[in-house]
Design a protein around this nucleic acid. Structure first.
Lengths: 239, 239
DNA sequence: TGCACATTTATTGTATACAATTTAGATTGT
DNA sequence: ACAATCTAAATTGTATACAATAAATGTGCA
């Protein structure tokens, strides 16, 4: 799914030597972003290693890199799990995004080219297509990719890396706390942003991105978590 | 050097299981922050492992964690080196700090307690003492610690982690590009910040932190690089 | 039945051995 | 003397084996 350019940027995110380790990072990262891996899922070293035909040494390095990015939690002597961001962490992450991404959008508006605009438009189109196909996971993945691509265009490596990490974690938060059925609300903001970019309107880009993120934040139902453990009992009892 | 509380926060920074791996991270981290390890120094796995009596497996994990934080660069089939931030990276890092830290200072001013103020004052005092003793490395370390402690007090884990990483990398930048002989310029800002904190003046704290960071940024001579090499064993053994 | 404790099992933590790759030095030819 | 090439040493990449730890199971007793 992620094209070659994304892979290079993701390599920066994970900071692991290229090769199998990076491959595994990318695969798990993608699975989490597309919501194929639920928060809390255990990632056993043996299991992952068997799936990708790699030894535990390599898998371990990948899991540690993912832990550093905040997508995975490693508990001593217990293993690695897909992270389950707390409500508090969720607030912090979206507040951080609201601080950083508007600034990045401002920079992007200044330096964006026609070619970059096409790239972003392609993301939007692909997202619409995915929504039309009913592939929610892919749509969400592409929605995040839109944001990371903006950071790439701004060509600010330090901020881009922070943004990438925050967006990946946001994907977990959305998996846990999203309440609205429609993701269509985003489309409008993304389009407005495109317009500001096309006109190189830095102020507008910054403002739009800021309110877009505040919208996203408020669209979360950051109140309670559903527990999967109890449900097992309920399910078996009724059966 | 780092007290127990710092160690807990640093554990969050590196995201490695506690134990030898974390120890090695902390030792190398400290050596870099105190400028005992120069940018570009090679960190051979065997050599580091021998110094700390750990196997390469553990050392590798530590080096990868440090690479993730941006303090170390790993080149495929070549090994790990203390990072040498480029001029461009240096600009980006200080711009990122100027974006994030003022916001953090604002939060800190709101929630700071008497005890926290004492903690910060202790940092300032220790820094003066180190300067008086002529221990430049320690003084710089403590100057950074002042900033990270502010982030800890704000009690924003997500932002605090970013700040910690940025400050650690700043230490490398200062090692490479610092031109002024006096670090005294900082003392004034730190004192002004303390006053704002004591009065819970959020606006002032934000402003002071912002101009403080701009000062630091402009105090760098981001033009050329010098290089030097020392024996790993001599530098790390004392830590 | 319920609880405490011992045992078994499974999984991670660590060390070590081997393979792949790079680097440095020596050798050779011009 | 200089350059190119090849060989050997050193270093990293990877796999695997063993040790340590935590969870799960089973047992005995009140």
């Amino acid at each position: 799914m992620p094209d070659r350019k994304d892979a290079r940027h993701l390599h920066d995110l994970f900071q692991v030597p290229p090769g199998r380790t990076l491959d595994i990072c990318l695969k798990i990262h993608g699975a989490i972003l597309e919501h194929r891996l639920a928060p809390g899922t255990k990632l056993s070293e043996d299991e992952v290693g068997e799936i990708y035909g790699a030894s535990r040494t390599v898998v371990r390095a990948a899991l540690q890199a993912l832990a550093h990015t905040g997508l995975v939690t490693i508990e001593k002597n217990r293993g690695a799990f897909v992270a389950k961001p707390s409500i508090r962490e969720a607030h912090e992450i979206f507040e951080a995004r609201a601080l950083i991404e508007p600034r990045v959008a401002r920079m992007t508006a200044k330096s964006i080219t026609e070619k970059d605009l096409d790239r972003l438009q392609a993301h939007i189109d692909a997202e619409h297509q995915a929504l039309h196909d009913g592939d929610m996971g892919k749509a969400l993945f592409l929605s995040g990719a839109f944001h990371t691509t903006i950071a790439d265009i701004a060509d600010q490596q330090v901020l881009a890396r922070m943004v990438r990490s925050l967006i990946s974690r946001s994907s977990l938060i959305i998996a846990m706390y999203w309440q609205r059925a429609d993701t269509a609300c985003e489309s409008h903001s993304h389009h407005a942003l495109m317009k500001a970019f096309a006109e190189h309107d830095s102020d507008a880009a910054e403002d739009i991105q800021k309110s877009h993120l505040i919208d996203l934040h408020s669209g979360l139902n950051l109140v309670e978590v559903r527990q999967q453990h109890d449900s097992l009992k309920d399910i078996l009892r009724t059966g």
